[in-house]
Every structure is written in C-alpha cells, then in structure tokens.
Amino acid sequence: MKRNTPLITLLTGAVLGIVLLVASMLATPSKAPAGYAGAATPTPASAATVASSSAAASPTAAASSSSATASANAQFRADYAGRVKGGIHASVAISIHGTQAVAYACNGSSVEAWLSGTASGGRLALTGKNGAVLTGNYDSRRAFGNVSADGITYAFSVHTVKKPSGLYRATADVRGAKIKAGWIVLPDGTEVGSLESNADSAAPSATAAPPLDVTTGTAQDGSTVLHVLSISGVTGSGF
C-alpha cells in the first residue's frame, strides 16, 4: 500500500505529538521546581558574555552618548516579568535601574520574597529576607537564572514587559503591623500576588493578595484600601 505512506507519516507524527502532549501534562504537576532548576542553570560563560554585550548595546543603553562600558551599564533600564519554569503560578518580576535591581518572586500565596541587589555586566545578584537569593543573567530582551524563596528554588527565563505588566507594591500600617503586598502582572494580564501581614519580621509570612485593580492602582484588603506603587526600572519608580 505505497499510496498510503504519506498518510502513515502524518498519523505517526500526530500520534507522536499526542504522546508528548500527554507526557507533558503528566510531567507538569509532579515535576519538582528544585530538580528542574539544576537542569536549567545557566552555566556557560559564553551566555554571560553575550548577555553583557547585548546589555551594553541595548537601545536604552545606546542612548547614552558616553562610550564607557560602566556608564552604559549605569544607564541600563529594564523590567522583566514572567512565570518561573516548573511552576504554573509562581512568577518572578525583576526591575533594573542602572546597576540597581529589585525583584519579587511569588506563587500567589505563601511562597514569596522581595529581593534587592545589583545588576552589572549582564549578571544579577540579589538577596532578600529569609535566605532569599536571585542570581542570573540579563540582556536587553530577557533575564534568566534561579531564584530561591522560602526554601524553594525556581529556574526562570523571563522577558521584558511593558506597563501595565510588571511589578507592583503596596505597603500599609494596620494596627501597628506593617502590611506589604506585591503583585506581578504577567504579559497576558494574569496577576500573581501575595501579602505579608508582618512585613517587618525577619521571616514574613504571606497569604494570597487581594485582587489588584491596575487602572486605579488600588487593592481592597478587608477594610483597608491599599494604594499600590509601580516598581519600574524603566521609569525609576520605586527605586
């Protein structure tokens, strides 16, 4: 039946596709983010070199008339946000303003961390409370690396985003306790947010944040109206 061989090719491909799709579906919930992180760790020095050179050559950086690399780095501004690898809800947002970097990692409930640190030469190094660490590389298009929050390590590769996507933060004092909420608005409009009810603690505990209204910049936490601040490396807001 030589006439049917193209059809067999087609059906074999379809079956292969369906098998892989089902395998992916089965792999998704059970796959531990920490185990996945090891496989995706950006080790090669070449990637770092590429990242740093593209960072220096980014449009924002190129706007600087100075030719010094350090100066170009100081001008670099970008906002990144996206889901981590291996986690359906966990997301990370990173904002770079010159050599300063702020990041927020959050799974929409109890796992979250605010981090701050440096962005220089294409490399990110940020730390936060409770042992939170973010390391990785960045260029004008994306940032990738690992972030640990509450003992869980996620690998991420996230792209630059434009408002209203990005990072938002709200703080408030309620009956002597400091509340700090963070939201990551993903490129598809999804919000992932957590709220620390004891933000001054060395190990703040978090719960799901109330919905954020990006248009009004507010969120209603019980009887408290939280006014959010956009954290943006591009505009410098929140730095």
Binding site: A23, S24, A40, V84, K85
Partner: peptide, 11 residues
C-alpha cells in the same frame, strides 16, 4: 505552563 517533557543532555 513554562514546562514540558525535556530531553536530558542539554542545558
């Protein structure tokens, strides 16, 4: 999902 089945041996 950001994840799917992977092949070992690649970064």
């Amino acid at each position: 999902t950001g994840i799917a089945v992977n092949i070992a041996g690649f970064s």
